[in-house]
Design a protein around this nucleic acid. Structure first.
Lengths: 355, 355
DNA sequence: CGCCATTTTGCAAGCGTGTGCAAAACTTTC
DNA sequence: GAAAGTTTTGCACACGCTTGCAAAATGGCG
């Protein structure tokens, strides 16, 4: 065990380096010395699959325990080709769906022996770029991008530095990343037929103005499916994909001349906003006067004030697919296309059918 | 620029090491060579405050740009006493309040030039311990614990390895960490007087069975304040601090003989559950028949289905305090005691007064 | 016991960086 | 133009670890 000198600059003209003997760290050398073996033996003891005799391993482990030794991953990452770090790039990560995904990813990564670094891409003021570069500096093995925000240049930057990349619900046309997407089109079709079976005829689609591919896919799928049945759809796009936007859209729709009797909201949060506007400001009863479907199946959808019928994000599957590709390195498959089943609650009239 | 050899073991009896020339990394040496200077010069160029002539700096920067050089933080962390890594220890991080806190912390840490590692402490099956050790391996400069779960032993482990520690709403009696707490007692007192002013007399407190100090402080404060006014409080503790528990408690309270006309819920989520039970299962009107106050002021509290009057967590202040202590190293102050003001919405009768 | 095959071990050379030290280059002053 | 002062530079060691290689130890077998 060796005391490490920490240097502290004084502010006077002459710069004096002071030794503050306050931090103690244990290195493999210390353990080796105590166990009476070479440093290599210590290293091998902590390297799965390396060749060490049982006796040596025991002695090393004992010494390590006694001294409180931890392998220094920074140093290990320097030698090995992998650092064990996986970087999660997220914007608006306090959104229920995103938060759930981050939690699940982090948990599963931990089980796989990886550690997750969190990058927040909220502001586009350059701090994002800084932070991402920061990650590159840590030689992350991989990045998982759940955010709509960071642009292709960044994806490319990560790729170039040798990272594996997983894109969740994005579609950057870059060769290399593993893509996970949902069958948004199918879901939209299911929504339309559910509305029709409930006897709805004046359909509307509430979208944000963000224009993310997956959001647009839902919109286009819904419009197309409705057209197949000879119905038009009122499409409204507004603001961000949040509660407040849904509320605004609700006000627009229900103060119009031909208010809809069924709305597919691109997102649960927007559905809540729209429902609240419809109920509390326009006296609509749900599902009697109005049917609503959302997307994501966040926790709040189960709350009895909403009881929202919605498509559920297969979070577990998304996570499993991501980690499997990252860890097991099955570089053959380049994308996964997952199904989002409809969860029936109380915002569509009539009985459920398999959909 | 040097090609790095990546070793891949084949599965045949004889282990053959194959060279896959696929990853390119740029080191300071490469940059030095190209710029025609020593490696030290490169290092100093990327070290703020180091002594380099303007001319050299220019040449280095140019070469670095051309080659796409990034300082390797792993190596830097090895030399310097600090790694730039801050570890966030969180359980149930998809809970609205926690998610918001994590987002804010991450964002602010980024601005301070730090990077955050996320540790999930949900299961107590040992994976937590593994993950935390993992972090120690990365020589994190600091840890911020927002979780109720990890026990004192872990806190101590982090401290011993030289980390700075911030405890948010916890109270491990260990010397060293920086503690941030709210004036839960004051809030409880404010709640009581708000209820009294609204004419409520049958008070109840809805708590979880978790028993976290801050939650207990709210309960005790509420009971004490009520007693000062000569009132008893029905206290119910159940389950986790979540929606479902609030609902269960609601059912218990309103199917009892003396149902309350005012409930202080230890947490917004529980308040929602309780409100939903009261309204949809017992036909209570809020705030006419029942007044409710929550704690946290999460996003959902502003939704018009709830419009919950609640105490707001001063997230920004919490974050500012944490980061300031971590970064500027003001080791003098050992704790912060923050105020949680009441946000008036529509779950308490009558007009607002300053409280 | 001696020979060969196998496992275990220590040595030493890296990995990419920071930084004290002394030499070199430059600047100022007389 | 030389001496003294200041800034810049390169060398070389350190950080804590992994791992190829060859030497040492171990085991098997006749």
């Amino acid at each position: 065990m060796r005391r490490r000198a920490i240097a502290c600059k004084l502010r006077r003209r002459t710069e004096i380096w002071v030794l503050c003997l306050n931090k103690t760290f244990v290195s493999a050398d210390d353990v080796a010395k105590r166990a009476g073996v070479s440093r290599s033996a210590v290293s091998r003891t902590f390297t799965p699959g390396a060749s060490v005799s049982e006796e040596t391993r025991q002695r090393v482990m004992q010494a390590a325990e006694a001294l409180g030794y931890h392998v220094n991953q920074l140093a290990r990452g320097l030698m090995r080709s992998e650092s064990g770090i996986v970087c999660l790039v997220v914007s608006e990560m306090d959104t229920p769906y995103r938060a759930r995904l981050v939690r699940a990813l982090t948990h599963e990564l931990q089980l796989a022996g990886k550690i997750s670094m969190l990058i927040n891409t909220d502001r586009s003021d350059g701090s994002v770029d800084t932070a991402l570069r920061q990650t590159l500096h840590y030689r992350a093995d991989a990045s998982i991008l759940l955010s709509g925000l960071p642009d292709k240049a960044i994806t490319k930057l990560c790729l170039d530095s040798g990272q594996r990349i997983v894109l969740i619900n994005r579609d950057d046309e870059i060769e290399g990343p593993f893509r996970i997407n949902l069958d948004d089109g199918v879901a939209a079709r299911v929504a339309v037929s559910a509305f029709l079976r409930a006897g709805c005829r004046r359909l509307a689609f509430a979208n944000s103005a963000v224009g993310t591919p997956s959001l647009m896919a839902r919109e286009q799928g819904f419009v197309a499916a409705a057209r197949d049945f000879g119905l038009d759809v009122t499409v409204v796009r507004h603001g961000n994909t949040v509660y407040e936007s849904g509320r605004t859209i609700g006000r627009t729709l229900f103060s119009g001349l031909e208010p809809p009797d069924a709305v597919f909201c691109v997102n649960d949060l927007m559905a809540f906003g729209l429902m609240d506007a419809a109920r509390h400001e326009f006296g609509r009863r749900i599902p009697d006067d109005l049917c609503v479907v959302g997307f994501d199946d966040i926790e709040q959808s189960g709350w009895s004030s909403y009881a929202l019928t919605t498509f559920t994000q297969p979070v577990d599957e998304i996570v499993r697919n991501s980690i499997a590709w990252l860890v097991n390195g099955d570089a053959s498959s380049r994308s996964a296309f997952l199904h989002a089943p409809l969860i029936w609650r109380k915002t569509i009239r009539g009985t459920r059918r398999n959909g």
